[in-house]
Amino acid sequence: MLFYSFFKTLVGKPVAVELKNGVVIRGDLTSVDQFTNLKLENIQVVDDHLYPHMSSVSSCLIRGSVVRYVHLRPDDVDCDLLQDATRREADRHKQEAAAAAASAAAPSAGRA
C-alpha cells in the first residue's frame, strides 16, 4: 500500500512508463489504483517512428502488471522520506508477524 500512496503523490506529474515489451509511454499521470494501474494523459510513445500503433491515442490506462519501470523526474521524489516510510512499513510487518506467531503458539502451549 506504501507505493500506492507514493504514486498518489505523483498525480499530475509527468512520467514515462516502460512496459514489459519495451514500449515507453510518456504522459501526465492522472490517476492510480491499488494494483498500480496507471492512467496517463497527453501521451506520447517514445520512438514513435518504431511504434506508431498508438499515434491516435490521447490518454490511456496501463495495467499495473505490465509495467517494468516508471521513470520519474528526480525533483518529484523525496528519497529520504520514501526510505523512512519503507523502513517503518517493514518494521510494522515484522511486528505483525511476531504478534501472529505469538498468538499461534499460545493456544497450542495451553493444550499441551
Binding site: 512496459l19 501521451i43 518504431l50 511504434y51 498508438m54 490506462l61 496501463i62 505490465v66
Partner: peptide, 23 residues
C-alpha cells in the same frame, strides 16, 4: 489486457493506416 487507450477521433481520421508500416 496491457493498455487501454482513448482514441482521439480527430487524429484517427487524419491517419491513413494503409500507408503506415511498422513491425
Amino acid at each position: 489486457v496491457a493498455v487501454v487507450g482513448e482514441i482521439d477521433e480527430d487524429i484517427e481520421s487524419q491517419i491513413d493506416w494503409s500507408s503506415v508500416a511498422a513491425l
